[in-house]
Amino acid sequence: VTTYKLVINGKTLKGETTTKAVDAETAEKAFKQYANDNGVDGVWTYDDATKTFTVTEMV
């Protein structure tokens, strides 16, 4: 189990959260659900070296 981080660069919501998951795919599903629940829709990137997902909403 690995800890993954999500950085949110939203128009109205900004911040970070973490989740523990067995792999990046599982973490991504959890983060996308979290973003969807919070009304964040944007471009996703993932950095495997730092285990960090970033979602950026276009203005």
Rank of each mutant, 00 (worst) to 15 (best):
A35W: 03
E28G: 10
T12V: 13
I8N: 01
E25W: 11
D41L: 12
T2Q: 13
V40E: 02
A27N: 00
G42W: 05
T26I: 08
T50F: 05
F31P: 00
T19D: 03
D23L: 04
Q33G: 05
E57Q: 13
T26H: 11
A35F: 03
W44T: 01
W44D: 00
V43P: 03
V22T: 14
T12I: 12
T19W: 08
K5N: 06
G39I: 04
D47A: 04
Y46W: 03
I8E: 01
T54S: 06
E25Y: 14
M58Q: 13
K5P: 00
M58L: 11
L6T: 01
K32F: 06
T2I: 13
Q33S: 15
A21C: 06
T19G: 04
V43G: 04
N9W: 13
A21N: 03
E57A: 08
G42E: 01
T12L: 10
K11H: 12
Y46T: 01
T54Y: 10
T18K: 07
T19Q: 07
Y46A: 01
D23A: 04
D23V: 03
D37H: 10
T19C: 11
A24W: 14
G10C: 12
V22S: 12
Y4F: 12
K51S: 05
V22A: 11
T19N: 04
W44E: 00
D23R: 04
D47P: 00
T12K: 10
D48C: 05
L6G: 01
T18V: 10
K14S: 09
E28W: 15
E16T: 14
T19S: 06
N9E: 09
D23F: 04
A49K: 11
F53S: 00
L13I: 15
A30L: 15
Y4V: 01
Y46G: 00
N38A: 10
F31L: 05
N36T: 15
G15S: 15
T50K: 08
E28H: 15
V1H: 10
N38I: 14
T3D: 08
G39P: 02
Y34G: 01
T2C: 11
K14G: 06
V22R: 07
A27I: 01
T45C: 07
T3Y: 09
T52V: 07
T3S: 07
T19R: 06
V59W: 13
A35V: 08
T54M: 07
D37C: 09
G15A: 13
A24S: 11
T17P: 03
A27Y: 00
T52H: 02
D47S: 05
K20Q: 14
G15H: 14
E16H: 09
T26V: 06
N36V: 12
T26N: 08
K5A: 04
K51C: 06
V1Q: 13
K14R: 12
A30D: 06
